[in-house]
Write a protein that binds this DNA or RNA. Sequence first.
RNA 1: GUGGAAGUAGUUCAGUGGUAGAGCGCCAGAUUGUGGAUCUGGUUGUCGAGGGUUCGAAUCCCUUCUUCCACCCCA
Length: 427
Amino acid sequence: MIEPLVLKGFRDSLPMQEIPKKRIQRKLEELFETFGFVPIDTPTLEYESVLLGKGGGETDKQIFHFEDNGGRKVALRFDLTVPFARFMAAHYQELAIPFKRYHIAKAYRGENPQKGRYREFIQCDFDIVGVDSTEADFEILSLMYSSFKTLGIDRYTFHIAHRGLFNDFLEQKGIRDRSVDILRTVDKLRKIGSDKVRELLCEITGDEEGSQAVLEYVTAGEGHGFEETLDVIEALVGRKTESSIRLRELYYLLKKAGIESHFTLDPSITRGLDYYTGIVYETFLDDIESIGSVCSGGRYNNLASLYSKENLPGVGASIGLDRLMAALEELSSPLVKENASADIVVFYRTEEKELAVLSAFSLRAMGVRTDLYLLPEKKMKAQYEYAEKNRIARALSFKDGRYVVKDLATRESHDATTLEEVAALCR
RNA sequence: GUGGAAGUAGUUCAGUGGUAGAGCGCCAGAUUGUGGAUCUGGUUGUCGAGGGUUCGAAUCCCUUCUUCCACCCCA
C-alpha cells in the first residue's frame, strides 16, 4: 500500500473549507468584473529564466525549480505578477491598453510553512498596466477596499507607503546606493524595536545622523494621520516631490470617496520585492496581525522591461486567499461557517422514489440548491445526521400527498401542497 | 535552510521500560417511531514511519516525515 501522504506545505481541502473558499472566490470575481477587469490565465510552470531574478535575491531561493523530462530548466510560478509581466510583453499588441486584468490562481513558494503560509496557495491578483497615474493607483486601492467590503470584513487596515518617496529621501541623505540593505533592516522595525534598528542602520550607513533620520522617516506615521505623516516626511526629504504629491492626491481621492478611514500612511512598509517603484501596501487584519499581510502590492513601472522594450508601467494588488481563510478560520468568522452543501435535502421511503427524484429535479429548476439523500433504506437518524454533516438547514419529506419541510435546527415542520411553497420556505 | 515544541482511537487527551487507556463520537441490537433520551453489547490503534539498545520500547537512542512556533521573508 502507498501512504496517502501530502507534501509539507501542501494541503487537501475538504468541502467544509472549500465551499466558503469557492464562494469568496466567486464574490471577488464578480466584483472585479464590476470594475471592468477581465480574467486571464498563465501557465503554472514557466522557464526558470523567466521567473528568476525578478523579485530579488531572497525570493529566488524560494522558487521551486527543476529539470523537466526534456531537460529544460523550469520553475513553478512564485507569484502571479512576474508571469503577468511576461504575459504583457508577449501580448501587449493584442490587448487594449490600459489593460485591467484579474487572475485567481495558485502560486508556489518553497519556504517553511506556518499558519497562513503554505507552499501552494491561491492569490487573487488585480492589476492595471499601461498607465502611471493617481487615478490608476486609486482604482486599485478602491478595488482593495471594495473587496473587503464585499466579503464583509471590516476590521482591517491598509498600510500604504511609497518606494519612490523613500528613495528620494535616501538620495537626499546620500545613501541611496544602500537602499536594499536599509529597506531590509527597516522592515524589522516591528520585530526588534527602534534601538536595534538604529544600531543596524549605523553599521550600514556608517553615519549616526543619517541612521537617526532614516528611523525618523520610517516611524513618521506613529500617532499621526495620513496627511500629517506626509508633512513630516516632506520635511525630512526637504521638499515636496512627485511621489509625495502623488500620495497627497491619492489621499484626497480616498477622502472624497469617503473610504479613507481604512488607509494609513506607514513608511515602515517597504516590501521585499525589488520590482516596486511607487506606492506599496500591505493589509493587516486588526484581530490577527501576526498572520501577516493578507493583501499586498504596489506600483511597478519597469517590470515588463525585463521582457520587452515597451515601457509598461503597472500597479496592482494581490489578496492571499488561503492566508485570509486561515485567518478567518482562526477568528471563527461567520464567513467560513457558511458551508452548507445545499438549502434543502430530500428524504424518501423506497416507495416514494419517483416522487422524490422528480421533486428534487423541479426544486433545482426553481433555483433551490437541493440534495437528494440516496439511501432511503437508512434509518431516519442516519438521514438527519447526513444533513447535519453537510450543514443543510432543511429536509423535505412526503406525507399523505403533501410536502413536509422540516427545519433541522428548530425541528419545526411546515406543510406545503406545492413545490413552489417548498421553494418559498427555502428562502 | 537553521533552531525549538509536538505527533497515541474519528476527536480531545492520559499513559516516561513490564498486558495500549478515558470522555465524547462511531457501529449493532432493544426501546422509540419520521433523529437527539434510555438500556445492552461492540468497535475504532501497524502509539506518524524506519532502524537501534533491551529479556521486554508508546516510553531510551538515531534517522526520517508531518504540524505548530521562531529566524528570514511574505500571500
